[in-house]
Design a protein around this nucleic acid. Structure first.
Length: 117
DNA sequence: CTGCTGACTGGTA
DNA sequence: GTACCAGCCAGCA
């Protein structure tokens, strides 16, 4: 357990991917939430970098959006991101997701909370 | 190893 | 709601 210090970066990346994979369809999470769930609430900046490279396949990186329900980016295929989110039942506006607070998936809140439904 | 960039966030004006 | 500044972390040249 002492060498963890050397694997944090690698672990963090894997952790982020694991969290993103846990995001259920029809739900979305912000970079901050994913980073916090990964163990680095201040690493949302890195989360974006990880999403961009997407080292692992089968990762719904399109479910990861910016704060305030903004889409953020999708490597130049932002249009695709909107389509994917809308395909999952999300209401995506011109600049941000509709009813974002309700669609927001909170991995850290799942301790004792209950979602809206 | 050093420096810049980026799929970002929060606070203040 | 919009605009500007400062902070944080990982990837690439």
């Amino acid at each position: 357990m002492t060498k963890r210090l050397h694997k944090v970066e690698s672990d963090f990346t894997a952790r982020v991917i694991a969290v993103v994979r846990r995001i259920p369809p029809g739900r979305v999470a912000t970079y901050g939430d994913v980073a916090a769930a990964a163990g680095r609430p201040r690493a949302w900046r890195a989360v974006g970098t990880i999403m961009r490279t997407c080292p692992a396949g089968g990762v719904p990186c399109h479910r990861v959006i910016a704060a305030a329900g903004r889409l953020g980016g999708y490597g130049g295929n932002l249009e695709l991101k909107r389509a994917l989110l809308r395909a999952e039942g999300l209401l995506v506006g011109a600049q941000r997701v509709r009813d974002f607070p309700a669609r927001r998936w909170a991995p850290a809140l799942r301790a004792k909370s209950r979602n809206t439904g």
